[in-house]
Nucleic acid binder design. Structure first.
Lengths: 233, 233
DNA sequence: CAGTGGTCTAGACCACAAG
DNA sequence: TTGTGGTCTAGACCACTGG
């Protein structure tokens, strides 16, 4: 009576990973094909495939049809940046969340933004500036343009209880978006809102989102001085 | 003769995504179980599973055994940050890469770093400061501590042709790491090296890597003013 | 206890790309 | 042309967890 045991794809991945890390297979080397590995590990090819696919997702191996699988020469680290809504980010730190509307107006976005979002000249937007506060202190300034052609409901929405940030996530699903992170010297108005000296280095995160080809919103998040974006590899 | 056709997991995902985006299933709603969906889409449950797993990875649905699958209330955007070696990042922009060693010494890291890496008091490190240049101009300053207990070979490595950044990726595989992104005012020495005024806002990326429980390296990348980290959702 | 997702298996066909 | 990964299927057992 031999014990029936199945091999988990995580086990296979762990062993493959070990061989890569310990240079049993060096960077650039081809590794055995799925069928052979399945025989060696005494499991189904599907299981090996799952393990290798996972390693490929992480950039540790490169796979091509016919050409086989190779250990990556320069594995590119991939960190996943989680971008929660501000309320959740703040509450996750155990702080009390509150937001205030600093300014709200229907307007045409400046050409800089029109170009970035590939908008027609007369696209009407809702321009709304929000401050997100943590325990009553400025956390991040949210300068946002909402496309009223794509999201007309935003025009009549009430943002006093639900911030534009949260309202949009719940009411205007997007298919894709861009993000840019940079460091800038605080402008006079930013410094004023954040309660910091003019010129202080601040972290800026700009994000645009689209639903297919229609732009939804473009936001510029200006964090308080000292803010750190954390993630792991 | 009915045509035999298989349904791809991408097709299933697309249809599920459509129903989520168009509020056929609203945020918080439970969606049918895998078996039922498989019947509806006339495919194997495995295929539905693959599609739902993908949506769960992206944070659009949450899944629990027995409890089923629900549309996420506040989908948390996940952006993948690619962190290539500096040479590749620069060459990908079509620029010429070069690096110079500004300083190199064996030393004990300051307590700030010892604490962050959870190191013993007498851990010897290689402290090496490198400038990565794009078309001859300062691109990023790389202030790095390499753990000589974990990576003894670094002590005798020659970093004139291969930067510590690239050398480590090729010679010291890691299992995991931390990343922190922040904005800081350029210090006198950073400003000097980067050719910018003291106090200019600069983007700083700090990264530590480990192999299991042994720390490998800790690096502080100080980018030239105006640098942007780009990604997409 | 029982329903739901998580995963494995064996087998099959297909798409791609190297030679 | 042909080897390799990509994926689908049908069926099965298991692990977790809500009731």
């Amino acid at each position: 009576m031999s014990a029936i045991q199945t091999t988990s794809w995580r086990d296979v991945r762990a062993e493959l990973l070990r061989r890569i890390n310990e240079r049993v297979w060096s960077p650039g080397d081809a590794i055995p094909n799925e069928a052979d590995l399945a025989v060696e590990f005494d499991c189904a090819r599907t299981t090996v495939n799952r393990a290798l696919r996972d390693l490929a997702d992480k950039g540790l191996v490169t796979r091509k049809r016919r050409a086989g699988t190779r250990v990556a020469l320069n594995p590119v680290a991939r960190a996943t940046l989680r971008i929660p809504i501000m309320r959740e980010e703040i509450e996750a730190k155990g702080l009390t969340y509150r937001h205030t509307i600093l300014d709200q107006a229907v307007a045409r976005p400046p050409s800089v933004i029109r170009q970035r979002l590939d908008l027609p000249f007369d696209a009407k937007h809702l321009h709304i500036i929000t401050m997100h506060l943590a325990d009553g202190r400025p956390y991040v300034l949210d300068d946002r343009w909402i496309n009223l052609t794509t999201v007309p409901a935003a025009n009549s929405a009430d943002f006093t209880n639900v911030s534009p940030n949260e309202w949009l996530i719940q009411n205007a699903p997007y298919t894709h978006g861009d993000i840019a992170i940079s460091a800038e010297d605080a402008s006079a108005s930013e410094a004023d809102h954040l309660g910091a000296p003019v010129g202080t280095a601040i972290l800026v995160l700009e994000r645009s989102t689209w639903h297919d080809h229609r732009s939804i919103t473009m936001t510029r998040l200006t964090f308080s001085p000292g803010h750190r974006i954390l993630t792991s590899i």
